[in-house]
Amino acid sequence: MQLFIQSLLSGILIGGLYGIIAVGMTLNWGIMRVINLAHFSLTFLAAYITYQFSTVTGADPFLSLFITLPLFFVIGLVMQWFFETFQIEGFVSLLVTFGLFAIFESIMREIWTADLRTLPLDIVPYRVESFWIGPYALRKPQVGVFVAAIIVSAATWVFLNRTYIGKALRAISQDRVVAGAFGVNHRQLALLLGGMMGVYAAIAGAFIAVLFVLRPDGTVDFIGVIFAVVMLGGLGNTVGAFGAGVIIGVAQSLTSATIGPGFSPLVTFSLLILVLLFKPEGLFGRSATS
């Protein structure tokens, strides 16, 4: 029983990580209609920059956010400008962003080599520290990413649903032409959203640098799971992405602890198939079109 609860907790927390990566993806896909594989690259690029910052200065990795947040806002914005200028969307965007994905990966490999990189424990001692609730351990950086995921997804939801700009963005996702007729400046809003995506990548990247051993193609461990989270949560639904992340995290974690880690994709994705068959609108619906 103790094993069960411990694994449940660890699954919930790791779900936060899935959620925070998925939030950026789901906005890009749901609102701008760009299936952005390069979002994974940006996340890992941010992780590498965080690593570099910390190992060179010896400072806490999260201080690097002062650099990465503005930097990635600009990168995200430029990327979105590129998509806008060349009118890239839909499944064509999968091709273009795969090209970007390959280029980013080779740049990371060129700078940091393919060898494994990890932040030394004396810089991030809290990586292996936990908060304790009775006999149950909550790993500090995982709690951090969980809280960050809640904040990011909730704030984005509020932004999209309660502010004028957010409503305009949602209007674009539903009908660009009509939105334009009502005076919504599509281009500026798209660039803003691109910048936001970059910021999310920077935040997720900082946590990945703390939690994982980095390698340039580490992105592939996440692509399948994040795609599932994005679609399960409902395209464009940031709160849904968070919820779906937690569900998949818990499913993986419990399978891992009870049947065996080798079965965790089997159970997780069978579950997903069942959900699709019996509740095909996604667990949380599409916020962008609702």
Partner: peptide, 20 residues
Amino acid sequence: QLRGELFALLTLAVEFVVAA
């Protein structure tokens, strides 16, 4: 209802399940 992205997700899930 299982069109578009949901069909894509379902087939992706099938691949993971078959592999496992």
